[in-house]
Each structure stands twice: as C-alpha cells, then as structure tokens.
Amino acid sequence: MDPDAGNLLDIQFQGIVVIVGNYGSGKTEVAINLALACRPKADAVRVVDLDLVNPYFRTREARALLAGHQIELILPPATYLHADLPILSPAVAGAIRGAGHLTILDVGGDDVGATVLASLADAFRGQTIQMLQVVNPHRPNTDSVPGCLAMRAEIEAAAKMEVTGWIGNAHLMEATTPQTVWDGYEFVAELSSASGLPLAFITAPGALIGALSDRPINCPVLPIQRQLVPPWLKAETITDGEPDEPGRAPGSI
C-alpha cells in the first residue's frame, strides 16, 4: 500500500450498491464489512439479504451484529428464515424504492443467484445503481480474466443489469498472506483494464493491513473482519479503529 496515497481504508458509497459474483466469491462477507465500514459516516445504512439460493452462511447470520451498529437488515419474514425456498419479501422492492443514504444488496451466487434482480426491475427503474462483481481468483471458474468476464456476462444476462465495477477479494481464508493480497490486486487490476470497468476496491484480512505497506496498492482497501465463521471459530471483533487480531487460532484438523 502506498502510505502517501491518502487514507485508502476510507471507503464511502452512496445510493444503491448491488453486490454480485460467483458462488463463494465472498459477497456476503464483503457486504457486511462494507456496511460496517460505511456506517460511521453515513446517515443510514441498510443491507438487503437477497441470497435466495444459498442455504448456509448468509447475511442473516450477522443480524445481531448489524443491528448493534444500527444497520437495518431486510430479511424474509422470520417464519421463513430457515426455509429451503427462494422467498422474495415485498419489503425488498420497498427498500430499493425508498433507498436512503446507502442500501447494499447482497445477492446470491452466479447467474442463478442474480436472476432475482431481473424481477426487481420496476423497483430499480430511474435509480442510480452500482453493481459490483466480487472476484476471488482462488475460486474455480474465476481464476482467469476470461473466466471472470464469462461469469460477468452470465450474471448480467440473468440480472438484466450491467456490472459497473469490480471488487477484488483474493483470499484463502486463514491461509491468506500479504502475497495473496498483492497478487490478487494485480489480477483484478488486469481485469479492470481488460474490461474497461473501474476497480472499486480490494479487500484484505484486517490482521494483514499493517503488513501490506511494502508494495503499492492504488485503490481503496476494505479490511475484512470475518463474521461468517464455522462454530469452532469466533467471529472477529469489529472496531472503529485498528482491527483486532483474530480471537482464536484457526481450526487445523
């Protein structure tokens, strides 16, 4: 990271931000951390759990955390919270139409997950929207620029909306190193030039932020404090200042 390039951690968005990407690209973790990062300077932040295809590890698992930061989370009705059905609450269209300062839509994976966006076309009409595609080059099918572009085309066709920028989310969970982040940055920078779409930001594990200063990263960096963890790990603590070290050693069986 280039220390003279201003506060690269200062990420601010307004309006409607739609987070899309392939399965397991990290959309939900990005959506939660982005909402928390934007909250201190935003009048109101709202997150819409639009993941209708994934049965586990959804935004709804972080509802207490988001509520604690006065971030509104739009979910299916409580009765259907564990339903194995794609339930689209009417509150979603309402949240889009009445979008306040910042509304983040966490969409399900692949073109299948993005299909729901097409059904919300009326609500989106006339609004300014950023649709950002999350890319982790360590995931199958998005480990190459053509792979990412193919995924983009499939998502756009299903969503009937266009991707407007990229989020670089290169990581290998607890095996992530600074090199993973640097290589991921170069990958997504290349993707940005190949596609002509801007690189909105990259992510890095909160605990590694301090170790990234040896090489230039010329885009904002969103520190990630993992929230969607399996039961033998603790979610990382969200703070307004320096990120904490992870609470527990990663499971290693």
Partner: peptide, 8 residues
C-alpha cells in the same frame, strides 16, 4: 491451493 466449498 484453491478455495472450495466442500460440495465442490
């Protein structure tokens, strides 16, 4: 190393 869901 690749990052994969168990099912994949």
């Amino acid at each position: 190393k690749v990052l994969m869901k168990g099912n994949e």
